[in-house]
Amino acid sequence: MMIKRNYFLPLYKVIHFYYDGFRNMSSWGKKVWVIIIIKLFIIFAVLKIFFFPDFLQKKFDTDSKRSEYVIDQLTNSPE
């Protein structure tokens, strides 16, 4: 029982450190966190998914097909 408690103590301290930090955050801190969350949502959930698919990953299934495509591009003979 003792061993288990000692094992989790540092983890508990770290979690408490962050919890306490966020709970007592200043007003500017809260504002920038709102901005960070909105920004990350726009970047990863909107821009990345709907506007920025990886062109070669989406167009081809395998690396060899991607290579062939790029070589075609480089040698001026698109399929």
Partner: peptide
């Protein structure tokens, strides 16, 4: 720091989408 964080990631998105021949090369 907070406002600027992750703004550089968009550049990496652009590499994959807009500059794919370059990214592969």
């Amino acid at each position: 720091f907070a406002i600027g964080v992750a703004t550089g990631i968009i550049l990496e998105f652009e590499f994959g989408t807009n500059w794919s021949n370059y990214s592969w090369f």
